[in-house]
Simulated assay, not measured.
Amino acid sequence: MGTEENRSVLQVGPLMPSLSRRLADDYAARRLPTEPTERAAFLAERGAEIIAVVTSGRTGVDAALMDALPNLAAVINFGVGYDTTDVAAAAARGIGVSNTPDVLTDCVADTAVGLMIDTLRQFSASDRYVRAGRWPVDGMYPLTRQVSKTNVGIIGLGRIGAAIALRLKAFGCTISYHNRHEVPDSPYTYAASPVELAASVDVLVVAAAGGDGTRGLVSSEVLDALGPHGYLINIARGSVVDQDALVSALVERRLAGAGLDVFADEPQVPEELFALDTVVLLPHVASGTVQTRAAMEALTLRNLDEFLATGELVTPVPLPAAAN
C-alpha cells in the first residue's frame, strides 16, 4: 500500500513495537507527542488531517482529543477493553470504535485460572520460601486452600467469563455469576447482585468490562460479603474494584487473599500489598503471549485496512445512542 494517501493515521500512546513499526512503515502514521507544548502544536498544525487513531485500552481517546481532531472518523483499539475511550463522545460525533475481541479470550481465561490456583495454593509465595532458604530452617510450608470443587462466582459472563467458567467446570467447581441481565439458557446459577453472588462463593472472579458502568462494582460491601475465607481474582480492569477497600480488607485479613492482574492506577500498585503472601500481583499480562499479541495486532490492522478502504470496521463496538 502507498504512504501518501494514508498519512492521516495517528498513533496515540504506546503500542507493541512491531505494531508501531507497521503503522509507521506501511501507513506513514504519526505519533501524538506526549509533551504538552509539542502536543498542542502538533494538534493545531496537523489535527484536521487525522481521520483514524490507533490506540490501546491503556491510553484511549478522550473527548478533548476528539475535539482537537475535527475529521476523526475511527478509533481503532488494540485490546478488548476500550473504557479509556469516551464512547459517548464518539457516538455523538459519529466516530466508529473498534476493539480486538475473541483473539485474546483463551489467554485471559488461562490467566484467570492460573492466578486463582496460584492465589489459593500460594505457589509464588512457596517459591519465595524455597529461594529464601527457609525450607531447611522452618520446615514445611503451611497448608493452603484447595482449588478443585470450590464455589466460584464470576462477575461478567461474557466471552472471557464463559471461557473461565468452562475451564473451572473441569476442576469440579460450582459456578454462579452476576451480569446486568441473566444469560438465557446458561447452565450456571444467576445472582441478582454482586453482594448476593459474593456471599455464596469461595472465590469471586472479576471478568466484567471496564468503564463508568462498572466502576467500583466490587465495593466494600461486596468484599465484606465475600468474607475472611474468600478470595478475589481480577483479570478485568482495576476500576471495577474499589481498590482502597480491597487493600484494607487484605491488610486487615478480612479477605483470605487476592490474585490481581490489573490495578486502578497502572503501573502503580499499592505498596501495602507487597509484603502479603496472600496476594499474587501480575503486571497486566493476561493476554501477554506471543501468539495472542500477534493475533491482536493482525486484527487491529484488519480494522484499519477495512476502515481506510471502505469506511467500515471489522469488529466495531456497540456505542450508546447519541443524544438528540
Score class of each variant (00 low, 15 high):
residue 155 I to Q: 08
residue 139 G to T: 09
residue 259 G to S: 11
residue 109 A to C: 04
residue 49 E to D: 15
residue 46 R to Q: 14
residue 157 L to H: 08
residue 224 D to S: 15
residue 266 E to W: 04
residue 106 D to H: 04
residue 322 A to V: 12
residue 118 D to W: 01
residue 64 A to C: 04
residue 317 V to A: 04
residue 27 Y to P: 05
residue 243 Q to N: 06
residue 306 E to V: 12
residue 169 K to I: 11
residue 243 Q to D: 06
residue 244 D to R: 13
residue 197 L to D: 03
residue 133 G to S: 10
residue 42 F to L: 07
residue 280 V to P: 04
residue 263 F to H: 10
residue 170 A to P: 03
residue 269 V to W: 06
residue 194 P to C: 11
residue 66 M to Q: 10
residue 220 S to I: 04
residue 28 A to M: 03
residue 324 N to V: 13
residue 150 T to G: 15
residue 254 R to T: 11
residue 265 D to H: 15
residue 285 V to R: 08
residue 290 V to H: 14
residue 35 E to L: 13
residue 12 V to M: 01
residue 90 A to Q: 00
residue 286 A to D: 05
residue 322 A to E: 14
residue 64 A to E: 15
residue 85 T to S: 13
residue 213 G to A: 14
residue 150 T to K: 13
residue 254 R to V: 09
residue 292 T to S: 12
residue 163 A to H: 04
residue 9 V to T: 02
residue 54 V to Y: 04
residue 206 V to S: 13
residue 159 R to C: 02
residue 48 A to P: 02
residue 91 A to P: 13
residue 292 T to H: 04
residue 146 Q to A: 15
residue 17 P to F: 02
residue 89 A to W: 01
residue 171 F to Q: 09
residue 241 V to S: 04
residue 123 F to R: 08
residue 23 L to I: 12
residue 262 V to S: 03
residue 248 S to V: 12
residue 88 A to K: 14
residue 97 V to H: 00
residue 303 N to Y: 01
residue 126 S to N: 11
residue 241 V to M: 11
residue 193 S to M: 11
residue 98 S to P: 05
residue 268 Q to G: 03
residue 137 V to W: 09
residue 112 A to E: 00
residue 61 V to D: 01
residue 304 L to M: 07
residue 275 A to C: 10
residue 178 H to N: 14
residue 206 V to A: 13
residue 92 A to L: 07
residue 22 R to Y: 07
residue 191 A to T: 04
residue 34 T to Q: 15
residue 36 P to A: 11
residue 288 G to E: 11
residue 279 V to C: 10
residue 28 A to H: 12
residue 292 T to N: 09
residue 40 A to L: 10
residue 87 V to D: 01
residue 41 A to Y: 01
residue 256 A to S: 06
residue 7 R to E: 13
residue 152 V to E: 03
residue 16 M to D: 13
residue 268 Q to M: 07
residue 33 P to N: 14
residue 299 L to I: 11
residue 84 T to R: 13
residue 123 F to A: 11
residue 311 G to S: 06
residue 181 H to F: 12
residue 221 E to R: 13
residue 132 A to C: 02
residue 156 G to Y: 08
residue 280 V to M: 13
residue 307 F to Y: 08
residue 185 D to N: 14
residue 239 S to D: 08
residue 166 L to S: 15
residue 99 N to S: 12
residue 161 G to W: 00
residue 270 P to Y: 07
residue 21 R to S: 07
residue 183 V to T: 15
residue 154 I to W: 10
